[in-house]
Structure formats: C-alpha cells, structure tokens
C-alpha cells in the first residue's frame, strides 16, 4: 500500500515545495520558477498515472501487447505548452514591471504603490 503510492508522494512533495516558493518568496522571477515547479509536479503526476507495469511506450510495434496509457501523455503535452506560454507571458510582464518600478521584489513594488 505504502510503496504503491510512493510515486505520488514524491509528486506531492515537489508540489508543496513549488507552491511554497510561489507564496513565500517576494522575488517575481523566483515566483515564476516556483510556478513552473508546481506545474511540472502535476505533469509528473499525470505521467505516473499513465504508467503500466511492463508496458512500453505507446508506439505500436509488433510483438508488444502492453502499452502505457497514451491519453495522459497527450494531455501533458498540451499542458507543458500551456505552462511555457504562461511563463513567457509572466516574464514579459516582469520585464515591464522592472522598467516601471526598477525592482522585481514584491515588497518594493508594493511600497511604491502605497506611496503613489
């Protein structure tokens, strides 16, 4: 039972760490890094779901009867793309924030906003 789920627990650990970075850190870029880790952990979860013991990659070939589940793979392909798109856009906003505030630290930005 416990061993049967160890994979998921690694996922949860990664997810928690990523989530922690997002919330606890004030550096905008680091937040995005945390977000990436967070999302990636979800990807790992999906792929883990897809794994079948003794199965092989889902590319049809003679002599193989057991394949891994292709559906989560497809979903995660899409999700990875979505993730990178989000990161890219986030970075673009950070670059603009840096130009406008000359800082990429949450604290300083909020200070400046409170002043104005």
């Amino acid at each position: 039972m416990l061993i049967g789920h160890y994979n998921y627990w690694v996922v949860v650990a990664l997810m928690m760490l990523g989530f922690y970075i997002i919330i606890a850190h004030g550096n905008l870029i680091k937040k995005l890094v945390g977000l990436t880790i967070f999302q990636t952990s979800v990807f790992i979860f999906y792929i883990s779901v897809a794994k079948v013991d003794g199965g092989s990659a889902p590319i049809l070939a003679d002599g193989i009867t057991q394949y891994s589940n292709p559906l989560p793979h497809v979903l995660i392909l899409t999700a990875i793309v979505v993730g990178i798109a989000t990161t890219a856009l986030g970075l673009a906003i950070i670059v603009r924030i840096n130009e406008a505030y000359d800082s990429i630290e949450e604290e300083f930005i909020q200070q400046q906003d409170n002043l104005s």
Binding site: T40, F43, K51, A57, Y67, I80, G83
Partner: peptide, 15 residues
C-alpha cells in the same frame, strides 16, 4: 522512464 517518450522529448526541449 515512465515510457512517455513524446512528453520527455517536449519537456527536454521546453523545461
């Protein structure tokens, strides 16, 4: 290792 070759390929190039 999880037999997700396509995903691995993508993750390598993206991640």
């Amino acid at each position: 290792a999880m037999d997700a070759v396509d995903v691995a390929f993508t993750e390598a190039s993206v991640g």
